Computed example of a mutant assay.
Amino acid sequence: MPEEPRPGPEIDTSMPHSARVWDYWLGGKDNYPVDREAGDAVLRLLPGIAASAKHDRAFLGRAVRFLVANGIRQFLDLGTGLPTVDNTHEVAQRVAPSSRIVYVDNDPLVLAHARALLTSTSEGTCDYIEADIRDTDAVLSVAAQTLDFDRPIGLMLLGVLNHILDDTEAQRIVADLLRKLPPGSYLVISHTCDATTEELDGEAMRRAVAEVMERGGTPICARSPEQIERLFAGTQLLDPGVVSCSRWRPDHSPWTDPEVPHFSGVGLLPASDS
């Protein structure tokens, strides 16, 4: 049996935690029995959810490389999650070592791991903010100590807006953040999705969300592709739009991999008309 991670004084191991469940699906070690039980319960309803988590991580890599190729050297990553392979700064700094990244999370476990494991290149910078993404003023104020808000920024919201249950609130958070970013910035979102297609069972996703909520885990919701697309208001949504993260500009044919119930997209913040 692998040794369990030792919980610190602020870490509650009596309830499942979304970041630790995600870590479990990705094959990590920073999770506890309660997280594995919740993760297995979801797997019984959505057998492909672990593969979906891996596709979501691969999407992060492709999106960051795309942004770097288009001149982005600064990233604001909200909802960091537990460190795993190919985190935002690792992907960016592999190509552009001077890239600057600010990670934001409101979980002490996540931030403790991030500070210990997410180390920058000597040419670049990594910083960490403990804040709730609802408090956009606090996030932006502290991020401005590391990032230059006069230059384009890649705003990363991967697997975090699905924890904002109210649609209006989720849209408000994105809009508040975008208002402070200069033209040429990019918005990257991935989100659990309850679409029903030939490959996806939206009802199974809704049952899985209910299972997590009933177990007392981190509140979570799934949204339709149309609801996710509305989160990109104010940006130019790039091709192929909001799609399964396995099919957002993959390195091979977009139809090789199956659809997964995490949808994603990338939007460009255009210059103002005024």
Rank of each mutant, 00 (worst) to 15 (best):
M1R: 12
P2F: 06
P2D: 11
E3N: 11
G8P: 02
P9F: 12
I11H: 10
I11Y: 06
D12S: 04
T13D: 03
P16A: 05
H17G: 02
H17F: 07
S18F: 06
A19L: 03
W22V: 01
W25V: 10
G28I: 10
D30N: 12
N31D: 01
N31A: 06
Y32P: 03
Y32R: 05
Y32T: 01
Y32V: 02
P33I: 01
D35L: 05
R36C: 03
E37H: 08
E37L: 13
A38V: 03
A41H: 03
R44T: 08
R44C: 05
L45Q: 08
S52D: 10
S52P: 06
K54V: 13
K54M: 12
R62T: 11
R62Y: 02
R65E: 14
R65P: 02
G71K: 09
I72L: 13
R73A: 09
Q74S: 07
Q74E: 04
F75E: 11
T80V: 04
G81N: 01
N87I: 02
H89V: 04
H89F: 12
R94V: 05
R100G: 04
I101R: 04
V102G: 05
Y103G: 08
D105W: 01
P108R: 03
P108M: 02
P108N: 02
V110D: 00
L111K: 07
H113Y: 15
A114Y: 09
R115G: 08
L117D: 10
S122P: 13
C126H: 12
E130S: 12
D132C: 07
R134I: 11
D137Y: 09
D137K: 14
A138R: 14
V139K: 00
V139I: 11
A143W: 03
A144L: 04
T146K: 02
D148H: 03
P152C: 07
P152I: 11
I153R: 04
G154H: 06
M156S: 13
L158W: 01
V160T: 05
V160Y: 08
L161E: 03
H163M: 06
H163D: 01
D167K: 14
T168G: 15
E169K: 13
A170D: 11
A170V: 13
Q171M: 15
Q171N: 13
R172A: 15
I173T: 03
V174S: 09
V174T: 07
V174N: 07
V174C: 09
A175P: 07
D176I: 10
L178A: 09
L181S: 08
S185D: 13
S185C: 13
I189T: 06
T192C: 12
T192E: 11
C193L: 07
A195N: 08
R207V: 11
R207T: 13
V209P: 00
A210M: 11
E214T: 15
R215S: 10
G216H: 12
G217V: 00
T218R: 00
P219D: 04
S224M: 05
R230W: 06
R230N: 09
L231N: 10
A233C: 05
G234H: 07
T235D: 10
V242K: 09
C245G: 00
C245A: 00
R247S: 00
W248V: 02
P250A: 00
D251N: 07
D251Y: 06
P254C: 01
H262S: 12
S264E: 03
G267C: 08
L268F: 14
L269P: 12
P270D: 13
A271F: 13
S272P: 10
D273C: 11
S274L: 12
